[in-house]
Design a protein around this nucleic acid. Sequence first.
RNA 1: GCCGGAGUGGCGGAAUGGCAGACGCGGGCGACUUAAAAUCGCCUGGGCAACCCCCGUGCGGGUUCGAGUCCCGCCUCCGGCACCA
Length: 837
Amino acid sequence: MAGTATVRPATYDFDAVEQKWQRIWEQQGMYRAVEDPAKPKYYCLEMFPYPSGKLHMGHVRNYSIGDVVARYKRMRGYNVLHPMGWDAFGLPAENAAIQHNIHPGRWTWDNIRYMRQQLRRLGISYDWNREVASCHPDYYRWTQWLFLQFYRAGLVYKKKAAVNWCPACATVLANEQVVQGRCERCDTPVTTKDLEQWFFRITRYADRLLEDLDRLDGWPEKVKTMQRNWIGRSVGVEVRFPIKGMDEELAIFTTRADTIYGATYMVVAPEHPLVPRLIADNPDREAIERFIEDVRRQDELARAAEDSEKLGVFTGSYCVNPFTGEEIPIWIGNYVLMGYGTGAIMAVPAHDQRDLDFARKYGLPVRVVIAPEHGPAPDEATMREAFVEDGKMVNSGPYTGLPNREGLERIADDVERRGIGRRRVQYRLRDWLISRQRYWGCPIPIVYCPECGPVAVPEDQLPVLLPDDVAFKPTGQSPLVESEEFVRTTCPQCGKEARRETDTMDTFVDSSWYFLRFCDPEATDVPFRREKADYWMPVDQYIGGVEHAILHLMYARFFQMVLADLGLVGTGRPFQNLLTQGMVLKDGAKMSKSKGNTVDPDYIIKKYGADTARLFILFAAPPERDLEWSDAGVEGAYRFLNRVWRLVSDLADDARTAGAIDGRTGRAPDPDAQKLRRTVHRTVQRVTADIDGRFHFNTAISAIMELVNMFYQYKERGGPRDREVVAEGLEKLVLLLAPFAPHLAEELWHMIGRTGSVHEQPWPSFDPDLVQADEMEIVVQVDGRVRDRMMVPRDLADDEVKARALALPRVAEHVAGRSVARVVVVPGRLVNVVTRR
RNA sequence: GCCGGAGUGGCGGAAUGGCAGACGCGGGCGACUUAAAAUCGCCUGGGCAACCCCCGUGCGGGUUCGAGUCCCGCCUCCGGCACCA
């Protein structure tokens, strides 16, 4: 070893380099964000993680992408806010408490400590002074405060509702948390339960949430479409059908009022409030009630199952169709949902597949009232497929002969004129159920007084703290219920003894405003100061997994709109631009513990360093796409960084001693040096275009790799080097590398004798004149096939290019025996000689 | 069923309607070395003796001088929604 002391090692000491610079950046407070009205601001945000224990590769990817954006924008002169925090309330902490007898708070804070250390080890440029954790009283106090503002604005209410219940988690779930009839978290089939629950009136904002999507240019179409579908706006008519022999009407909602002459029966949901009266006189009442019980016991899973059978029973009662005057039977059916519309429908089997299936099963009549414009009408007796297209109306009294779209409007007009109904907009979106029967969440600041009823906790008594000394038992009951210390209180209004609400909030409430707290994390008398929020908001670039396309991203939009309406913020839009990253896969499947295909970030960082881990994950695929993990690919990224390090080490002396390239005059440039210089400038152009707006980091990195390859060729060819070209090239190379491999870039920056931090330099510029070569290669095609290529001066006239192409022997060969019909010249690219036989 | 997105070498992936496969991985060859590793360089879609030529971007048509890219009709995979009247 001693004998080879002068030979530099083949690989760099990434551990030493990364730790050194992390320490220095930290000491200098380099990433601290301070409001500065003189500079344009840029708020770069990645979705904060749930502190589950340790980071997974999806996190590494998310935060690496965000860090490139933040560092790039900083170099571009923006005042960048890049914060991080913890979505720290949630069920896993409580499950850990039950299983391992450790307090959820302790468990959570331990995880936070570990994961924070991991993020620091990755060298992400966060302003750690702004760190927040949603489980901290300084944070959830304001979650409660916001709840009270919503409460006062009439956006919070409590009602008894049939709710989704997960027996395993022993809590209710929002509709959004039920996936395919199963609990999003534990996959247990979800059942329903009638419970008193708290709701946010998000439906009041349905239209605005929908409309604003059209103006969110910076969001992926996919996400906007998912939200549009989720909100599910449909325009239709509510019509009341008189019930025969009863002083009642049955209201239905339909988007197809034009088919009303084809309504041959009615169907109501089993839970419909009129059901008891509809079946009161039926001799088979008990059988019907048994049927209803069966359907209600059917859990969500069975009801949601594909082609689940339509079941129904006749009530014995009849409606009168207000348009035909006919009496039509009222059925109870499992395919009609109480939660949508009015819980009752008019059934038009000829023009609705579900109704047709039901009618065929129970032998109900089918009547065609819309016929195709051309060709025969479907045969009522035999049709198996409902006719759902547009056409002309038939069998429809005075409307017969009209195009159905026009008939629809006329019938809706007549419904309104006759006072038997009205036009209506119906949403699929339901109000947001926010109460959870769990301990580890933000307590709902409400007190129940025997005299005054539910009373809001006054703002100056916030936060309502979670008690620490509670018992965690696997009973499914929230420990809060048994905590007398917590429950017993006095009424804020009358002072009498009262009991606290023991439900806590859905954790999506916590995450619906954290981006605002980041603007002013220290605020003590408000959740955030308006002027701070006005400076930083909206988030310029939000980055996270597409799995939050509906839930989190819609709730956050809802919150921001409400807060804008309340005058707490100036903009109703939280996130200007959204980037949804793809998943990290291993062997074609999502990494998961149960599949045993996880890759541990700690191990990768230990073996190759943070820069390599980040570089690989950015290089392997563009951000929106799923990324296939490859150990060999990581190896390649590591090799590349070492290659850069060796290159710069070897040429650092040139760079340190060279003069500035700008001032140089009268030197005949060596063509190799000139070529290198052109590549340098061309690379700056390419990398800039790839990062800016496109976020194609993989091609940006490949461009840098090409530059490094070119540099090696220049270096290895031997002979004297143009030190000024080398110096300029290395400097730009290191600057380009800075967002992707921040530690190594910083090390190299100093190695080539530059001062200050590389991350505080302006982004490199390129000279458009230098980017273009004097001579360019033109591809010459004959009939669209490449036959030759030639070098021509950059600004050679098209005619001359054409002449030179035709003069090429290879072209003559291929044209032989034919005549030239036409010659297409694409300037700077190719010539295509088109022949005719 | 409806709504998105994607199908390109052995693999990850590149290509404003203009050289298909950049860059990386893997593989081959060479240089350096006593040797190996590391490193540096060259080659690497298939067919073919050939760097001539032919074929080639899921399949079938079309538009165009020219199509991975645009249009029409399919197939497969992934994601979302799904008795929403």
